[in-house]
Amino acid sequence: MEFLFSLGNLFNFLNYGGFGGLIGCLVLIIIVLVGLNFSGRFKTAIDELVDANPTSISNPVVFTVFGVLTFLAVVVATLGQLVAYFNMFQYGFGMWVLTDLIRIVLVGMLGFAIAGLYFQPERANVKIDKSSSVAEDVIALLSFGLKVPLCFAAMFSNALIVLGVITILSGLGSYFDTSNYYGAMTVQMGLGYFVLGAFAPFLFYLLFLFLFPIYNFWLAILHIPKIGKK
């Protein structure tokens, strides 16, 4: 969350306005379009990257347990956000009534979709292999955290873009009231989500590329005893 706040600070130039602010906005649009182009190219590469890096586990029961825990955590978090949302009604109404509800539903459904991946780990190329050793099981579990954003790269990207637009819309009314700092912060955060969404598949691809090789090395060591055997 702090990362997103600091990302929003990159767009402080909007508060200064003028011709420089307009140029900044045009540059931002070009950056977003370039990011979307990069991400489009990476979506196919991501599917191939997941297919090229299988891991194995002897029994998927531990993924089922994590799936249940994730599901329950998402239920609790969503209910908490809904309670906070309904409490906000005492302060008045505005665009936030619609946008905040859409945000809560969108994030909740995203959380449930991630829990779904734990129930079906084969979608992340985790093979159920009874001959899988304990070390291979541990690698499958630890590396699953890297595979989740990769499998959901397109969905995360689209969700961040939609969330960004919703956040900008919810802050826009207050933004035009120059004495309202909150509106400017909300618009900047929305822009942060929007730009992050444009680059998300590219960033997740790089994250996987730089961090997964550690597991590849361990898997290679574990396969040494199996060389030459059927």
């Binding site: 906005c25 960004g164 900008i168």
Partner: peptide, 30 residues
């Protein structure tokens, strides 16, 4: 969610770019 996000994606990108332009043009009034 996959179906909804695929449908909402193009609209969101266009609306987002329009909003950035509106914010930039509004900034000219400062």
């Amino acid at each position: 969610l996959s179906v909804f996000l695929k449908l909402a994606y193009a609209w969101s990108v266009v609306i987002g770019i329009v909003l950035i332009l509106v914010i930039g043009i509004y900034g000219l009034t400062f």
